[in-house]
Design a protein around this nucleic acid. Structure first.
Lengths: 108, 108
DNA sequence: TCAGTATTTAAGTGATCGCTTAATTCATTT
DNA sequence: AAATGAATTAAGCGATCACTTAAATACTGA
């Protein structure tokens, strides 16, 4: 496993990791807040977060005692869309959407 | 692993399987034709094709001695797109636009 | 029917994954 | 400094994955 696409699909292959991303979709959360929602040790969550961060799907920032995690929507959207475009040209409309997200984020 | 989304992401987690999909993007191929392109046994390719078919990403049809495989673009596109919508809510307002583009393409 | 080709299925094996508990690091509070 | 709390890192273990080779199945043509 080396490239960005590989890392992203590897990260998304896990149901707990996709659920973590879903939780982060609406707001930034600390590692502990995420862990609270899962029937799984904090350690396990930390390991999942590491995989997600390594794939560029989340970013983390330590503030005092807490580590805050946030989704990196742009990377998820552009990776999936570019793969989709590569494999099924039918999906071209998604590109416009992806571009629009990128522009929205750049301005805001 | 049960739902469709799980199966799709599980299938896409493998680099050889993504390469198989890429090969099938341009034309239908037999199992043997796919296997020729990989430094891997026919058996392994058959197993990968089984995973992809089980995820609804390819369909197969036996004609005489050969089994022809084809990509199911729609399932790939709609699965990734719907997941993206779920996780990147920013993109939701743009769906109407996306749909409009798709409809324009369908008509023209 | 027999031989040859295409493909799948079965069985086995090493590598990786996903978790656990325990130990560690870092920040805060007293 | 000592104790507490948040989070990561380390070590280990069972389960699953991704291959392999060998056997089975199915079709074709002499």
């Amino acid at each position: 496993m080396q490239g960005m696409i590989e890392k992203v699909f590897e990260a998304l292959a896990s149901t707990p990791r996709r659920r973590i991303l879903a939780y982060l979709a609406h707001s930034e959360l600390t590692a502990g807040q995420i862990a609270e929602r899962f029937a799984m040790s904090k350690s396990a969550i930390s390991q999942h977060l590491n995989v997600l961060e390594n794939a560029g799907l989340v970013r983390s920032e330590k503030r005092g005692q807490f580590v805050h995690y946030a989704i990196v929507q742009e990377n998820l959207a552009t990776t999936l869309n570019s793969y989709l475009q590569q494999v099924c040209p039918v999906s071209r409309p998604l590109m416009a959407e992806s571009r629009a997200i990128a522009e929205t984020k750049a301005k805001g």
